[in-house]
Amino acid sequence: MKPELPPRVWLDRAVNLGLLWTGSLLAGSGLALKYRVGYTAPRGATVWGLDGEGWAGLHWVLSLVVLGLLALHLFRHRRWLWGVLVARFSPGLLAVVLICALLAGAPVLWPGE
């Protein structure tokens, strides 16, 4: 008989599955906005009963959910992440992390033209 898995494993699975499905619908809503209900769509076009504004709202909320799940995912694996950073520290790894931070923060912090 298999040993019972601890609750934290089930939590990680829920977060990962949530990320996978929510991320998929996030991508689908982006595609719908671009190709089905966007600016080039005929007036009054809807998909699943949602018009362009409805899909834009859903896309925005799903992005917040994905960001939240991603933050939770990273928090749950913080010890592993820290371990990798400390144990395998190298200039290359530091460059990877810095580029991550730059890509995430620069569009928000960069002064507008």
Binding site: A14, L19, W21, T22, L25, G49, L50, G54, V61, L69
Partner: peptide, 16 residues
């Protein structure tokens, strides 16, 4: 996992 995307979807439909 279903609630993560179904709740926003239902909320959007209700809002519409």
């Amino acid at each position: 996992a279903i609630a993560c995307w179904l709740v926003p979807l239902l909320w959007s439909l209700q809002r519409q």
